[in-house]
């Protein structure tokens, strides 16, 4: 079977910026940021606290998100990880799907899930109340005012 290459000597012309290239660049820029963000996330949540994973509960998360530093840290991680991961999954889907309709549906679903989780996560980080009314005091961080 022969492959027909039309006008092989003419350079590709683009009427618009190449989206695929921006995706490629994004992976390489977000990657190093994600290494720092996630390594510190793992160290501060699983290594530093006494008990590691066993120490993680609502009070622990509330204690972290009481500081804007960790809110912004986790926000950056949320956005970059989801976009990086979704774009990676898009590459995988592009590699293994045979039918264009299937490919488009999967890629569309990926970005739908990505947007929904970015929206959800962003709302959770910024509307989060570390001392919700009515919660059992022993589940809350120690800085919450004691409820009688």
């Amino acid at each position: 079977m022969s492959i027909v290459i039309e006008t092989p000597n003419s350079p590709r012309t683009r009427s618009q910026a190449n989206l695929e290239k921006y995706g490629w660049v994004f992976m390489r820029i977000s990657g190093p940021f994600l290494i720092v963000l996630i390594f510190v996330h793992l160290i501060s949540n699983l290594v530093v606290p006494d008990g590691g994973i066993k120490a993680i509960d609502f009070a622990f998360v509330a204690g972290k998100w009481a500081a804007p530093f960790w809110q912004w840290w986790d926000l950056a991680m949320l956005w970059l990880a989801l976009i990086h991961g979704t774009n990676g999954m898009r590459t995988v889907v592009n590699d293994y799907t045979e039918k264009e309709g299937v490919r488009k549906t999967l890629v569309f679903s990926l970005w739908g899930v990505c947007s929904a989780l970015i929206l959800l996560g962003t709302l959770v980080i910024f509307t989060f109340d570390p001392c919700p009314a009515g919660a059992a005091a022993e589940l809350l961080p120690s800085f919450c005012p004691a409820v009688q």
């Binding site: 509960d57 609502f58 998360v61 509330a62 989801l82 989780l117 959800l120 996560g121 509307t127 919660a135």
Partner: peptide
Amino acid sequence: FLLVHVLDTALVRVSPAAYD
């Protein structure tokens, strides 16, 4: 894992008991 992890962390917005 990331999909699951964002969802489980979102439970802090539901209630401390649900998250725990």
